[in-house]
């Protein structure tokens, strides 16, 4: 088990090197004039050259990469040429916001998707099953940003039940930073009013974010449940008098969830990269919004670093999933 984890962790390193190299090459090889953009519209050629020198952009690409890569080892993510801020600082601000959103959405998708898929399989080829499969296809067809707008229109603008956007009211002091997750920090400090407020802000973006993974998890769960229900051990359990409820919710569910886990791991990475749209709609101050601003400004240090962080989280999530898979599925663990 430990050896398995260590092996997987070591394998991350070449992936991260490859990832940063690709992002570095793509961002510098393409046309575009980031320095000119950053120096301002009225900058002279000499000023632009000085600006490039200040950030070391006049040196060969591989030297710049070496600097960046060795910096990463020290936790130095470079400096934004646009805002002149340390990228590491920005990441520390924006990453928790994105993670809070992604975890909330994923939790919603898992908590609703797994039972829904189980039920769809139990009611196979009857109306709950048909309804769920049509809604699942509809859900994955729904553009997240359009869903976000609709939610805003109904719940924030017309009904005025929930805030329009942002993470917390501007005039309030946000919960003390322990984890960076406002909901958890508010609970830890006993600030229940703050917790409610954080939840109200989180609700709409999390729903907009969760719909498509919910549908996928549900369909995956349905498929794997149907497959498990065909297994001999289910017939044996039925033949020996176990109730349908016990068989489905205890025995079948456990086997089916382990197959569904893989999808959840893939979706975690997909959601991290996909928060951009939802964050734009809800002005959620997270990595996606940060990356968008940097991309529009062609400010590449933040872009490469955001891709690095997301890639790192994605690979890590998959290792966690593999370990969980072993916990649920004892046979894998011992092999």
């Amino acid at each position: 088990m430990i050896r398995f984890i260590v092996k997987r962790v070591v394998l991350i390193i070449p992936i991260l090197i490859g990832l940063t190299v690709i992002m570095f090459v793509i961002s510098r090889m393409l046309p575009g004039d980031p320095v000119g953009l950053a120096a301002g519209p009225n900058a002279t050629a000499a000023e632009i050259a000085a600006y490039a020198r200040e950030f070391g952009l006049d040196r060969p690409l591989w030297v710049q990469y070496w600097d960046y890569a060795t910096g990463l080892l020290r936790g130095d993510f470079g400096v934004s040429i646009f805002t002149r801020r340390e990228v590491a600082q920005d990441l520390a601000t924006y990453l928790p916001a994105t993670l809070e959103l992604v975890f909330a959405a994923l939790a919603l998708a898992i908590v609703l998707g797994i039972p829904a898929g189980l039920l769809a399989a139990v009611y196979r080829n009857r109306w709950p099953d048909y309804l769920s499969s049509v809604s699942a296809i509809a859900a994955i067809s729904m553009p997240r940003f359009f869903l976000g707008l609709l939610l805003q229109l109904f719940f924030a603008m017309w009904l005025m039940w929930l805030p329009l956007g942002g993470r917390f009211p501007i005039i309030w002091e946000p919960p003390t930073g322990i984890t960076g997750f406002y909901t958890i920090d508010a609970l830890l400090t006993g600030d229940f009013e703050g917790f409610a407020m954080a939840c109200r802000h989180l609700a709409l973006p999390a729903i907009a974010m969760s719909l498509s993974p919910l549908a996928t998890i549900m369909r995956m769960m349905r498929a794997s449940t149907l497959e498990v229900m065909q297994q001999d051990y289910v017939t044996t359990a039925r033949a020996l008098g176990l109730s349908q409820r016990l068989i489905i919710f205890k025995y079948v569910a456990r086997n089916a969830i382990s197959a569904t886990l893989t999808v959840i791991g893939l979706y975690f990475g997909w959601m991290l990269g996909g928060t951009v749209l939802v964050e734009t709609v809800f002005d959620w101050p997270g990595l996606g919004l940060y990356a968008t601003q940097a991309i529009v400004a062609q400010d590449f240090m933040p872009v490469v670093s955001v891709a690095f962080v997301i890639g790192l989280l994605f690979v890590t999530a998959n290792i966690v999933i593999d370990v969980l898979y072993g916990v649920i599925n004892p046979k894998v663990r011992y092999e």
Partner: peptide
């Protein structure tokens, strides 16, 4: 269902697939 396991026991062919591997 009340008779199964209580009055009628059953054994099947393949012992590798008739026990749930996850429990």
């Amino acid at each position: 269902q009340a008779l199964r396991g209580k009055r009628i026991g059953m054994i099947f062919q393949d012992p590798t697939t008739n026990l749930n591997p996850a429990f």
